[in-house]
Write a protein that binds this DNA or RNA. Structure first.
Lengths: 328, 328
DNA sequence: TATATAAATAACAACGTTGTTAAAAATGGT
DNA sequence: ACCATTTTTAACAACGTTGTTATTTATATA
């Protein structure tokens, strides 16, 4: 049997409503008694019954995160960061790995205050006027029923090229997935192409389609690249895993990074620093993303205003040791 | 404002306590009225307020899963399966990716009925007489304060060798991680050695230490193997990822599976069927593991009996197309 | 010292359920 | 038609909180 405010009340010789107020720091109770009550509560190891709190206070102080598929490292890191971020607020987070509709049902039952949805490029129609919801990901339809937060993939790749150009590179290869069904990847590709155009470096031969986002896809693509008779001076990797494969392949073939080839990767996650060569990277940092997502949903929950409809976040570039000036 | 049993009551012209009973299928209310009430409830889209239910019924019907680090594919699959399994019961699952102690605190606040802990080889001392808890993983200390469920790694590897022996293989190589600090890996290694001893095939030269569990580790180890002048007729791979690297390497070097070399892998997960060659594998299936874990924790929650202290689950072998009779 | 006012505390309703007890309605046997 | 059951329904307390209202106690003012 757990202890309640009533137990504390009898021990402190006050009424339980006074205990409630004291524990909530109400100015209606004398500082003295407040202190005493708080002390007794602590010493008894009191934990408020959240079911009771919720019953009376209408909101659950829970944010539900729907994460239908447990996937790439980037998403896992993002989940962790979101969890941390929420832990700093008065809210808690619960995670569901169920399919979207089922997770929505569960969360409706749980009466969570808000939902964060990792959208998997799936167009699922969601009961619009129910729980506050924001999505992370890309929306294909133009009229959003809920706010969406997204990284600006296109800008990221543009900036990557811009950065390499500034280092004197004129011979840049993009190694990434160019799947037309994945809007994320297409945006990256577009960004790269636009930049190459802009800086007068365009040409299809500078692009290798990995046909996948995994480590091995990068490895294979890099192998293919090395078979060419003229190598680029810089590579833009399309994802964390792809870049992992690329640098492994280069290393095995005694191509030095960054002396022979500079490498910059998409995905701004801390793990980039722990690779065999600490990688320069560009992307919205998971911290920034997590922070934006959490603040948005809480703001949405507490104010019910949803002016911001589609927020594309600006990427940042992190310099480490995988890029250098182009050799003259 | 959500609808409550009182709303249903007024609409049905009965008392709210009757509604409660009807909705819970109590035999105390006439079938006729029961039907009517249920129908009205459905049509109004009634959802019970779980906070209220919990408040009165003492237990929360929530199982907490502590998953401190988001990791290998195998664990991710296991989480999904556990989630599915729990969804089939009257319980719900919430997931915390926080560090163990913090997650424990959160769950205490949530007043979850039970906790599943993915133990990370960390010896954390847990307040023993609090929430029912079972762990998945290996315990180093001999006196468990809580039940532990674990796959029998040793037996799995023993059976793998046994199986290959039955197919006529006498020249078997183990490619796996032999890290003495990882009890899981050591158990696998021991199982392999014991079987080789038993069948008179022993010898250290049949073992390659991958020094890691990743795809690339397997790839490198296989490359090393192919440099030997005499190849084995069968390989036992130490993990899903390792085996992925192995078969890719063999394929690249035009070694046919299973014509030239048979391959069997540890880790019994569905993904094994989707590899370039559907792999024979051995291990406790995630379904079995999930089922056992879920039933154990629910049993523990509902009966408070914890007779079973340390359960090592028996692995099963799945035959696909990566093993064949040894050539004579 | 009495009285108005302010401060501190207590009492109590409410939140939406469930389970127990009390009341009403239906049924059966004489 | 009357009483004893049995079936069905209603009434109500309880769960542990919070917030509002009522009461007590302390303080200041005349």
């Amino acid at each position: 049997m757990n202890i309640t405010i009533k137990d504390i009340a009898t021990l402190a010789g006050v009424s339980y409503s006074t205990v409630s107020k004291a524990l909530n720091g109400s100015p209606l109770v004398k500082e003295d008694t407040k202190r005493k009550i708080v002390e007794i509560a602590k010493e008894m190891g009191y934990e408020p019954n959240i079911a009771a709190q919720r019953l009376v206070s209408k909101n659950t102080k829970i944010i539900g995160l729907i994460w239908p598929t447990i996937e790439r490292t980037v998403l896992a890191t993002l989940v962790t960061k979101i969890s941390d971020e929420i832990a700093n607020t008065s809210y808690s987070m619960v995670l569901s790995v169920d399919p979207i509709q089922k997770a929505m049902d569960t969360f409706k039952k749980f009466q969570v205050d808000g939902i964060i949805l990792f959208e998997e490029n799936v167009n699922i129609d969601i009961n619009p006027n129910s729980t506050p919801l924001i999505a992370y990901g890309v929306s294909r339809q133009r009229n959003y029923q809920y706010p969406i937060i997204d990284a600006n993939h296109e800008q990221a790749m543009y900036e990557a090229v811009h950065y390499l150009y500034g280092l004197g590179h004129r011979n840049i290869t993009y190694i990434g997935d160019i799947s037309p069904i994945d809007p994320f990847q297409m945006e990256k590709y577009e960004g790269f192409k636009k930049a190459m155009d802009k800086f007068g470096l365009a040409g299809d031969e500078y692009i290798i389609d990995t046909r996948g986002l995994d480590w091995y896809n990068g490895y294979v693509a890099a192998t293919k690249l090395l078979e060419l008779n003229s190598l680029p001076t810089a590579i833009v990797g399309g994802s964390y895993d792809i870049s992992g494969g690329i640098i492994r392949c280069l290393k095995e073939n005694n191509v030095s990074i960054p002396e022979d080839i500079s490498v910059i990767s998409y995905d701004n996650i801390p793990q980039m620093a722990n690779m065999e060569i600490p990688l320069n990277c560009i992307g919205v940092s998971v911290e920034a993303l997590a922070s934006e997502i959490v603040h948005s949903i809480i703001n949405l929950v507490e104010t019910e205003n949803l002016e911001t409809q589609y927020k594309k976040m600006t990427p940042t570039l992190i310099e480490r040791s995988s890029c250098a000036y182009a050799r003259t």
